[in-house]
Design a protein around this nucleic acid. Sequence first.
DNA 1: TTGTATGCGTTATCAA
DNA 2: TTGATAACGCATACAA
Lengths: 337, 337
Amino acid sequence: MGAMRRPTMTDVAREVGVTAKTVSRVLNDGPVAVETRERVLAAVRKLGYQPNLMARNMRVGARDAAIGLVIPEMGNPFFGTVAGGVESAVRARGLTLIVGSSDEAAGLEQSLIATFLARRVSALMVVPAASSDHRHLRSERVAGLPIVFLDRPSAGLRADCVVSANREGSRTGVAHLIVHGHRRIGFVGDVPASLYTRRERLQGYRDALDGAGLPYDRALVETGHDVEAAARATMRLLSLADPPTALFAGNNLASMGAVVALSRAGRKDVAVVGFDDLPLAEALDPPLTVVAQDPAAVGAAAAEMVLRRLDGDRSRARRTTVPTRLIARGSGELPPR
Amino acid sequence: MGAMRRPTMTDVAREVGVTAKTVSRVLNDGPVAVETRERVLAAVRKLGYQPNLMARNMRVGARDAAIGLVIPEMGNPFFGTVAGGVESAVRARGLTLIVGSSDEAAGLEQSLIATFLARRVSALMVVPAASSDHRHLRSERVAGLPIVFLDRPSAGLRADCVVSANREGSRTGVAHLIVHGHRRIGFVGDVPASLYTRRERLQGYRDALDGAGLPYDRALVETGHDVEAAARATMRLLSLADPPTALFAGNNLASMGAVVALSRAGRKDVAVVGFDDLPLAEALDPPLTVVAQDPAAVGAAAAEMVLRRLDGDRSRARRTTVPTRLIARGSGELPPR
DNA sequence: TTGTATGCGTTATCAA
DNA sequence: TTGATAACGCATACAA
C-alpha cells in the first residue's frame, strides 16, 4: 500500500510509443505534430502524470524556482503582511515562496539562509535579525544572486533594501503632538537601541523636537522589548517628577504597551501617537492616532526589486523608502492637561 | 560579472585529486581516511562549495525535503501564528516550509497545491478555503503522501485534521454570558454560513442556550465577513425591538466589529464574549472577555501529525482537537442592564 | 578506504 | 517532426 511510484515522463512516452523528449516538447509547447500532441496529452491524463519540478529546475537553470524569505516572526501581523505582499507579487511570476522565521536570532537566520542557498533559491529576501551580519553573503552577491533586505538594511553588505519612512514618519508623528501643544513628549521604543528602526525613529523624534526648538531630555526616552515591558516603561515615564503629557510609541508592541499601561492606570488624559497601525486602534478610548506603515507595500516593493534583478538589472544597490501616513483618531489630538 | 558557475562536488574532487564519490562520503560521514577527509574539507572551504540540496533531494528520495502549507491569509495573525507553529516543529527535522496563501479562494488553493505537488513536497498541510473540495487529492493520499488539514476539516477527503474545540469553546463562552444573567444573546458570525468553524461555533451557541432552557431566536443571529460588516451586523442586532443584552462574536474579525460598533455607539453596557483572543483585548473598555484559541498549538499538532506520517504511521485518519480557554476580562461579566 | 558504473527525471544538442 | 545521447549534481551498488 502507498508509495507506488509516480509516473514519469518516460512512462508517458512508453504508453504513447514515443520518446521522453517528445513528451517534454508537448508539455513545453515545442514543435510537435498535432496528432502526436493529442495522444501524449491523453496518456498524461490517463496516467495522472505530473511533471517533476525538482528535476526540471535542476536541469534547466540549476536554480530553484523559489524565493527564500526570512522574517523574524510569523505571528506578528506586520511581518505576516509583508510576507503576503511578497508572496502575491512573486507568485504572479511562477515563483514559490519558502519562508523561515529567525526569532530575531542571528544564528537561526544564518542557518535558514544556508538552507535556502543549498536549495539554490533564485533570490533571497531577508528581514535582518537585530544583531545579524551579512558579510558572509558577499560571494553570493558577486555571483549574481539577487538579495533584498526588508524593513531594515543589511549590516556589512551593500544590497537592495526596502524600508518604511521611519525617520520622516516619526518626525511627523511627534510634530503632530507638538502642534497640539505638547512640550514634554515621552518616547517608548524597542530594544536593542542598536536596532535600525529604533534608531531611525528616535532620530525622527529628535528632529521634531529640534524643529520646534524643544530640548531633548534623555529621561523621556524609555524602552521595552514586548508589550509588558513597554507598559512598565510607560509607567516609569508617567511617574517622573516632571512627567510627559504625551507619548510617542516606537512600534506596534510599544503602542500596545503604552495603551495597556494607560488603560490600567485609568489615564485618558495622556496624548499618544503610535508608530504602526493596530487593528483595534479605532475602538480604543480615546481612539489611537498612529503613523501607519504599509507592510504589504514593503513586501510588494521588495518583490518587484527582486524580479527586476532576476530580469537582469545589474545597476547598483538601491534603497526604496515606503511612505507612512498619519492617521489622526483622537489620542494624538488631546491637549496637554 | 555575476553568474559564474558554482563549484560542484566534482570540482572539489578534482581539486583534491579524488572522485566525487569520496567527497560525497566526507559530507555524509561515510567511511573516509582521516587525511583524505581533511584535504576534502580544505578544498570545500577553499572553493566555497555548498552541496546542492535540489540534486540531493532528487537522487535520494525523489521527494523534496519541504512541506507545503496553504493558508487563507498571511497577514491574519491567527494563520500567521499557525504557520509559525508548523515551521518551528518542521524545521527541527530538517524540513523547510513552503507557503502560499489562497485568499480564501478554492481556485487559488488548488493551483498552489498543484505547484506543491509538482515540487514533490514531502507532505501537504492545508487550511481549506471556504468552498474548496479535495477529492482531487485522493490519489495522492493512496500514494502515501501525508496530508493534514488545519483549522477546518477537508471536504471530500478522509484525512488527518487538527481543529480548535470550536463547539465546546463556543458553548462555554455563551454559557458564561448566561451565568451572568443574560437571556437574549446575539451571535455575530462570519460568512459563509457553510464555513465549518462558523457552523460549529453557532452549534455551540445553541448548545448553551439549550442547556439553559433558553429559546433559539433566529433574529439574534447575524453575519459579517469583515470588521466593518461585523460592525453593521452588531448595529442591526442592537436596533432590534427586543435587542440582545449580550453578544457572542464568532471569530476575531467579528469580535473587532462588535467592539468597534459598541465603541462608536458609546455603548458600554452590552456584554461581549469573543471567540479568539485579540492583542489589545485588555486595553479595551471594558476589557474583552474571550474564548482564546491556541493557534501555535494547532500548527504544532498538525506538524507532529505530519512527522508521524512521514515516519511511517499508516493508521487511519485522525482528528485532533486543540482546547480553547475562557479568559474573563470584564466585558463578559457585565450584567444585563 | 576508494573508484566505477549507473540512475534519479528532466531538457539540450544534434542528427535523422 | 522525432529520436538518440548526453548532461544537470548527487548518491547507490558493487567492485577493486
